[in-house]
């Protein structure tokens, strides 16, 4: 059983409250043979990754699971951020049903780019 670190999306709480985000992330992690062992959430003033960046050195899970790709979108999808995570963790996005690993990154990258340019 793998362990995953959940990262809730504070910017969509009004549309999808934390309880539903937890359910979605937990279910998605179970589909990937894991469970959520801990979670975090940004403060509106620490966006995009202030709290998470600070936590990273202490995270010992197999992967990180965000609620949505929208948490990693600045001006387009934030590939440099994802590429800093991938050597150490696999990265899931529950809402979009995609799990990124070192192995499938090249294949998934165009789809992530598209997520960053939805309109």
């Amino acid at each position: 059983m793998k362990s995953f670190y959940a990262v809730l999306d504070c910017q969509s709480f009004s549309e999808c409250p934390p309880s539903l985000q937890h359910l979605a992330i937990r279910s998605f992690c179970e589909q990937h043979n894991g469970e959520v062992s801990f979670y975090t959430c940004e403060d509106p003033l620490s966006l995009p990754y202030g709290v998470l960046e600070d936590q990273l050195p202490e995270i010992e899970t197999d992967g990180l699971c965000f609620f949505t790709t929208q948490q990693c979108i600045q001006e387009g999808f934030d590939f440099p951020f994802l590429e800093r995570l991938l050597p150490r963790w696999s990265v899931g996005f529950a809402r979009e049903n995609v799990w990124v690993t070192k192995e499938n990154y090249k294949e998934v990258r165009p789809w992530l780019w598209r997520e960053g340019h939805r309109e």
Binding site: C10, T40, C41, D43, P44, V51, E58
Partner: peptide, 13 residues
């Protein structure tokens, strides 16, 4: 135990 919540405030969320 090092697993603990980060420095935070509960509101405005």
């Amino acid at each position: 135990d090092s697993e603990r919540a980060p420095t935070h405030r509960d509101a405005p969320l």
